[in-house]
Design a protein around this nucleic acid. Structure first.
Lengths: 132, 132
DNA sequence: TTGCTCCTCACGTCACGTGAGGTGGC
DNA sequence: TTGCTCCTCACGTCACGTGAGGTGGC
């Protein structure tokens, strides 16, 4: 019946399930992004810590900095349903989306460019072969 | 009639034309990627330096590290037409292309995901408005 | 003398990686 | 005693950013 005692995992298990290193988890803790329970010096991660890590990793995929993520998480930790904050978050996310789309456009250009270079390289290698 | 004396530009002009900072140019020099001419303590960039910077920036767009770029440039500085080296470079470039394509795929997933989040955020904001 | 461009240290930043050296319980 | 997992410093990495303090020529 005890509540936060059950269902905790070690740092090693966290690394396994989320595919991160222990260093990363300790670093996020130092940056105040997650607060595992301590059992002596050992860290134990409960449901809440795991949920936060999930959100952190999602934020990273969106290209947010850890500091951005910390602020977003803390905002929703306080009051998840404040209209002003929701709008603010929405605006920030829209901005990030634009950046990601710009990044994708640049990446597309670079990929096309590199393919062109590769085609030229292939031609040169073929010339070598023909000259043998 | 003097050869390497004409057609050099200052660091400020380099920054203008290539849209980089002076710190970046000095950093690349420290990493032995470019060797501008010295006139006292001032740096002057000739055609060769400018060509190398162009290639460096292109390499960066392809996602190569500065160390990778330095090696590629030095290879072609020595003998640009060695078949073994050309093949080696080709293999490295193919590898990079695969990484870039994987990166684009991840970016596409993230963009789709973020758009989904935004749609949910919009719905919540609309609910707020309806409740007023 | 004032402005402007350029210079050289050298510490700071971001997100961790990588040892070094030590602990605790099976 | 040996292994294994975990721990805490603390320096290293990558590609620069950012002052601080100084120089040279119009």
């Amino acid at each position: 019946m005890e509540d936060s005692m059950d269902d905790v995992v070690t740092i090693g298990e966290m690394c396994e399930t989320f595919q991160v290193t222990a260093r990363t988890l300790r670093f996020y803790e130092q940056k105040e992004l997650i607060w595992p329970i301590r059992q002596g010096s050992r860290r134990l991660y409960d449901r809440k810590a795991r949920a936060r890590l999930q959100l952190i990793l999602r934020g990273k995929r969106f290209g947010f900095s850890l500091e951005d993520i910390r602020q977003l998480l803390d905002m929703y930790e306080r009051d998840g349903s404040n209209q002003a904050q929701l709008k603010q978050t929405y605006a920030v996310a829209i901005d990030r989306l634009r950046q990601m789309e710009a990044q994708r456009a640049e990446l597309d250009v670079a990929i096309t460019e590199l393919k062109q270079e590769l085609a030229e390289g292939e031609a040169m290698i073929a010339d070598f072969r023909a000259a043998e």
